[in-house]
Computed example of a mutant assay.
Amino acid sequence: MPKTNATSWNVMISGYVKMGDYFEALAMYDDMKVASVRPNAIIVTSILSARSQLAAMEKGKEIHRTLIDSELETNEIVMGALLDMYATCGVVDEALNVFNSLPDRDLVSWTSMITAYVTHGQGLEALKLFGEI
């Protein structure tokens, strides 16, 4: 393509993630940054999914740092993907920090956090959190 934008990058990155080619999705994201294209919520969600599948915590934390003080930090879908990435990678404390920062917790965020506790051997914490719903 002679000219790319966030939509064209999103199509490519999301496609690679859906096909399970997470390394290629991450490479496309890096190329997108080099091309000075700002990621939107859909791109960030796809990249967080790829990073959680690869358990690439450092790269996931890098994304989290770029979200801080951005308009995407208030996006419920992005924050849900961030919570899921931390939970999938076993960083339950960070998942809880994201969960606690959510202004409006929905069924998905409650379920993600409770599942994170259960999956990582913290059943008592899961029950406590379930009692708060």
Rank of each mutant, 00 (worst) to 15 (best):
S49T: 14
K128N: 11
V118C: 11
G121V: 01
V11E: 04
E58R: 14
G90N: 06
T4W: 05
A87K: 05
A35Y: 09
L82F: 09
P2F: 09
N10D: 01
S112P: 01
K3W: 01
R38A: 12
A35E: 09
M32F: 11
G90D: 11
M1P: 13
V78K: 09
W110R: 04
R105S: 01
L72P: 08
E58Q: 10
S14Q: 15
L127Q: 06
D31W: 02
F130S: 12
G123S: 15
T4L: 03
E94W: 10
A41M: 06
P103K: 14
S70I: 00
A116G: 07
K59E: 15
Y16F: 07
P2S: 13
W110H: 07
G80R: 04
I133L: 12
S8R: 12
C89S: 08
F23L: 11
F130E: 12
M12C: 08
G15A: 15
T74R: 14
Y117T: 15
T115N: 14
I47H: 03
E62Q: 10
E76C: 08
I114D: 00
G15F: 07
E125T: 07
M113I: 03
F99V: 02
L82V: 05
I77Q: 03
E94V: 07
P39D: 01
F99P: 05
K59G: 14
Q122H: 14
Y16D: 03
V34C: 10
L48A: 02
S14N: 13
A25P: 03
S112A: 12
E71N: 10
V118I: 11
L127W: 10
N100V: 07
A126Y: 09
G60K: 09
L83W: 02
D93L: 01
R38P: 10
K33W: 03
A55W: 10
V17C: 01
V91E: 10
H120R: 05
I63W: 00
V44C: 08
M113G: 00
D106S: 14
N40M: 05
I47K: 02
S109V: 03
L54Y: 08
L107W: 15
A50H: 04
E73K: 02
A27R: 14
N5P: 02
N75A: 13
F130Y: 12
